[in-house]
């Protein structure tokens, strides 16, 4: 229970938590951009917003992760390749190989392992942000629509500019309508984290399988198939995380309900 491998396992719980917290701002950003795009008066922008939200929602996240991240990785390297090595003459695609100049590799081939891990983590985070951003966009779009007309008209009556109305009235009031949807999304996000190991991040599922698997005599502590036990530990971890989240959201709901003309706010 105290081998280096076990410490890697304990540390991976932290990885999952960090990913969750770091990703949230990006999800909100993507969601917000998506929601605004869908409300745009300019048709192409609206079309992009709609395409983004409906495409990503239509594809299972697991399928999306399986190819989108390799594509993203190669896309970044391709851009760096164009910028950093303008004189490179060899083709980038040679058969099935994808070759960019060594300076464009992300991270550089010579970089220490931790940089590779951080980069993998960064890619995984982007993947999560794109997928869950689409769901958040949908929620926020609905919430923006749900703010009562009268509230906005009051703003007009006070002679506010459209920008002022949006920032001072529309946006603050949107949160109460968006919160149930967003809290639901958070719960779904928590439960999507076991997919991290698909993205090459050594997360809790990876280590649980690794530690629980059959260990023959080559290992210092041989044992049989203990994966079930390790997975039960993961189950408990996730239940705990959900329980804490529920409590936090209850408080948050009370907070954003202040002064709102809803059942919760009137109390």
């Amino acid at each position: 229970m105290t081998t280096a491998k076990h410490f890697a396992f304990y540390k991976s719980f932290g990885t999952v938590l960090v990913l969750l917290f770091v990703t949230v701002p990006f999800i909100l950003l993507f969601g917000f951009a998506g929601a605004l795009a869908r409300r745009s008066r300019f048709f192409p922008v609206r079309a992009v917003g709609l395409a983004y939200t409906s495409m990503v929602r239509g594809i299972p996240d697991i399928v999306f992760f399986l190819f989108a991240l390799i594509a993203l990785d190669q896309g970044i390297e391709y851009l760096r390749h164009i910028m950093l090595c303008p004189d490179w003459s060899e083709p980038i695609r040679q058969g099935s190989d994808f070759i960019v100049c060594p300076e464009a590799k992300m991270p550089l081939g010579s970089a220490p392992q931790w940089q590779h891990e951080v980069y993998g983590f960064f890619l995984a985070m982007t993947g999560f942000a794109v997928v869950f951003g689409a769901f958040a966009a949908n929620t926020m779009y609905g919430a923006l629509q749900a703010v009562p007309r009268g509230q906005l008209e009051t703003g007009v009556a006070f002679g506010m500019s459209p920008r002022q109305i949006f920032r001072r009235i529309h946006l603050p009031q949107m949160w109460i309508y968006a919160l149930p949807g967003l809290s639901n999304l958070w719960m779904i996000l928590i439960k999507a984290t076991p997919l991290l190991f698909l993205l090459g991040v050594e997360d809790i599922v990876y280590w649980a399988r690794e530690l629980g698997g059959i260990k023959i005599g080559l290992y210092s502590y041989p044992h049989g198939d203990w994966r079930l036990a390790y997975f039960v530990v993961l189950l408990v971890f996730y239940l705990g995380l959900t329980w804490v989240s529920e409590r936090v959201f209850e408080r948050l709901t009370r907070y954003v309900s202040r002064g709102q003309d809803t059942a919760g706010g009137a109390l």
Partner: peptide, 15 residues
Amino acid sequence: IFVIRGSPLFIQFFI
């Protein structure tokens, strides 16, 4: 409801 909603489907499948 709590146990099922609180745990990832992936882990439910495995267990």
